[in-house]
Design a protein around this nucleic acid. Structure first.
Length: 656
RNA sequence: GCGCCCAUAGCUCAGCUGGAUAGAGCAACGGACUUCUAAUCCGUAGGUCGCAGGUUCGAAUCCUGCUGGGCGUACCA
């Protein structure tokens, strides 16, 4: 049962009497922002009045005349320029609550038109440990999968692992030249990660050495141009001044940009030059960039040594990543990495060539698309394939295997152009009604507004962050428990609570932001256990459990048998209405695939429960009837909270 | 050069695709623990929604221009 949908269904015939094309008008029915206007409001009389050439208030009256909502709403009221305000009848609210009480789905229906949805998310590069940058795709994708599934869609979660690209060329090269056997025996993944970083640094060093002089030159050139332009501006007459100053600003911003690039290169260089040992190694590996590409080519060509190394590394790398997924309770239906599609790439390119969708240009096989200057390259001039090729092969495979209605890619928004091209190219290739969507998200920034990194410039390991979150939560749990007259928890339970709270904090920090914006965190803020956090929601759940524990009789059973509610207190009514909006919140998530719609809903629910908790004693309610009603409201709140958090991938604890 | 995105309270962010007086959380200040968990609640203060035009009954939201920032842009993913 979805209140908003029901109201819209009732408005549909009333609107159809007056006009055509009612769908956009139905969209204008929504929850009221201000409770004093009622529970829901219809804003469609104003535009309709314009369309019909009638005063909006008169249109509103006609709408109401044709509207049948008596069974669940008070008589509608017209306000202001023509708003129609609706207030739900308490009897009806009560009946809905009673129904939800005995429903394991809490009144949330499954969809009438289930889709088959493939979600591509997380997709880390397995050659290095997961870092903070991976968390968004993983957590958002997991949440969307859970919500879609809960609403009755068939979901295939696919972890499109980066297990075949240049990064493996890098660790293969690193292994051949720099491996320390003892370290590799001790902890192979850590050693491989070290090798990756080392090779990466050396490549960047040589690239930097080549490019730095060019940058320096460019900086000098721009400095000169800025100087010249400064004097031009000084000498310009009033008419020309504005124009010339604009040119100046442009140059200055170019200069700043180029300086930034140069400083970035210089920093990469100094990482090597300040380390004599590394510098010596760098000298010995002048052609490392090209050599790494060759290792990758050999791997792809089936070279025995490289393939053997890859077969040795891959399970270890995947195990490492799997450990993080276990901790975070993330599960995929399939994990076909890029390597899975390797055999199919040649065929993809052939098909594109044969159908005329692609052609050769400057030695590369390119798909030229109408809206872009640069083509999408599907085979390099050296014969190697690219991620665009793999992505196309992946689409073909998914179409053949699952015939999905929808394919979601939960990937960093910086790749939006790649996906636009990919989807355009794929659309004319697969000839199907399938819808593609890039679910982009912003970058996780540090306090300096730059991508989140440690002081030394490395990315922050995800496991360290999780450990930190759990440790911090543990300290709070212990502190809290010890302050009670009688500490309640064993060390084991404290650890369990800390784990749930710590991991929840990290997931929630991510999901509660609008996915499209970049967001900034420092660990303190991310791990804050107050305010709009998972902890606050988990706390409201635990408080309900505490009430049930303290009740002498089997209060849970009692609450489940409640047949009526008392919503006399404003806090009770507000809580009740919020509970009945769970379904709206879930559907709102899927409108634009935004999990923060659900976190917002749950946060408001928790706030409303807190207000209720302050003002409405449950166990000491004046009458048995009121006590039962409040127990049942508490029960519904805790179940909604648990289910809502579960859909975010966050657990609850019985006490904290 | 071209393209995409962003600018909302001191800070971090919401704002449901055009609705009524722009909201939270931190931080600040003032209150509330003999009463079901104070990881909480109540209150105060804090805003020319980057700037300038336009569209209309009505704009943080849509359009145009400007300013400032981020990202991408032919063989990395």
């Amino acid at each position: 049962m979805n209140i908003l949908s029901q109201i819209r269904d009732r408005f549909r015939p009333a609107l159809a009497n007056l006009t055509e094309g009612v769908d956009p008008l139905l969209e204008m029915i929504r929850p009221s922002q201000d409770a004093s206007f009622g529970d829901y409001q219809a804003n469609c009389a104003m535009p309709l009045g314009k369309q019909l050439g009638l005063p909006p208030r008169e249109v509103a009256q006609r709408l109401i005349d044709g509207l049948n909502v008596d069974d669940f709403c008070d008589p509608p009221e017209i306000a202001g320029p023509g708003f129609i305000n609706l207030r739900l009848k308490s009897d009806w609210l009560i009946a809905q609550l009673v129904a939800a009480l005995s429903d394991t789905r809490l009144g949330v229906d499954t969809t009438d038109s289930p889709d088959v949805v493939v979600i591509d998310y997380s997709s880390p590069n397995v050659a290095k440990p997961m870092h903070v940058g991976h968390i968004r795709s993983t957590v958002i994708g997991d949440c969307l999968a859970r919500v879609l599934r809960h609403l009755g869609h068939q979901v295939i979660g696919d972890n499109h692992l980066g297990d075949w690209g240049t990064q493996f060329g890098m660790i293969i090269y690193g292994y051949k030249h720099f491996v320390e056997d003892a370290a590799y025996q001790e902890n192979p993944v850590m050693e491989l990660s070290r090798l990756y970083q080392r090779v990466n640094r050396l490549i960047e060093f040589h690239a930097g050495k080549r490019n730095l002089p060019l940058r320096d030159q460019k900086v000098a050139q721009l400095e000169e141009q800025v100087d010249t332009q400064l004097s031009v501006c000084r000498d310009a007459d009033e008419k020309q001044k504005k124009k010339q100053e604009k040119v100046l600003r442009k140059l200055q911003s170019q200069l700043a940009q180029t300086r930034k690039e140069r400083d970035g290169l210089a920093e990469k260089l100094s990482q090597v030059t300040t380390d004599p040992e590394l510098l010596r190694v760098a000298e010995e590996h002048q052609d490392i960039g090209e050599a790494v590409l060759q290792e990758t080519v050999r791997l792809h060509a089936g070279d025995e040594t490289n393939l053997a190394l890859w077969n040795e590394f891959l399970p270890k790398c995947r195990e490492e990543i799997q450990r993080v997924y276990e901790r975070l309770d993330i599960h995929f239906d399939v994990e076909y990495g890029e390597s899975f599609y390797h055999e199919q790439l040649a065929q993809v390119v052939d098909q594109f060539l044969e159908s005329g969708l692609a052609r050769e240009s400057e030695g590369a096989i390119c798909v030229f698309l109408e809206d872009w200057d640069a083509p999408m390259i599907i085979r390099k001039k050296d014969g190697a394939y690219l991620y665009a090729t793999t992505d196309l092969a992946t689409i073909r495979y998914r179409m053949d295997t699952w015939q999905p209605d929808l394919m979601l890619y939960v990937v960093d928004h910086r790749q939006s152009e790649h996906f636009s091209k990919l989807f355009t190219a794929a659309a004319s290739w697969v000839e199907s009604e399938v819808e593609f969507r890039h679910i982009g998200f912003g970058t996780v920034l540090g306090r300096d507004g730059r991508p989140y990194r440690t002081r030394s410039g490395d990315t922050v390991g995800l496991e360290n962050l999780l450990d930190e979150a759990v440790a911090k939560a543990h300290a709070v749990v212990v502190d809290n428990d010890q302050r009670k007259p009688e500490p309640e928890m064993s060390e084991e339970e404290r650890m369990q609570v800390a784990r749930v709270v710590g991991h929840g904090a990290i997931k929630y920090a991510d999901l509660s932001h609008n996915r499209t914006s970049d967001y900034e965190f420092d660990t303190d803020k991310m791990l804050a256990l107050e305010g709009n956090t998972a902890t606050y929601l988990q706390y409201s759940y635990a408080r309900v459990q505490s009430i049930f524990r303290r009740a002498e009789v089997d209060a849970r059973r009692q609450s489940q048998q409640v047949t009526t509610f008392d919503l006399g207190h404003a806090a009770e009514r507000a809580l009740a209405l919020q509970l009945l909006r769970f379904s709206e919140a879930l559907e709102e998530v899927l409108v634009d695939f935004r999990p923060n719609q659900l976190t917002d809903y749950l946060f408001k629910l928790a706030q409303m429960y807190s207000v209720f908790f302050e003002h409405c004693p449950v166990l000491k309610a004046e009458t048995d009837g009121l006590r039962h009603s409040r127990l049942a409201l508490s029960d519904l709140t805790s179940r909604t909270m648990q289910q809502g958090l579960a859909l975010l991938g966050i657990e609850v604890v019985e006490r904290m």
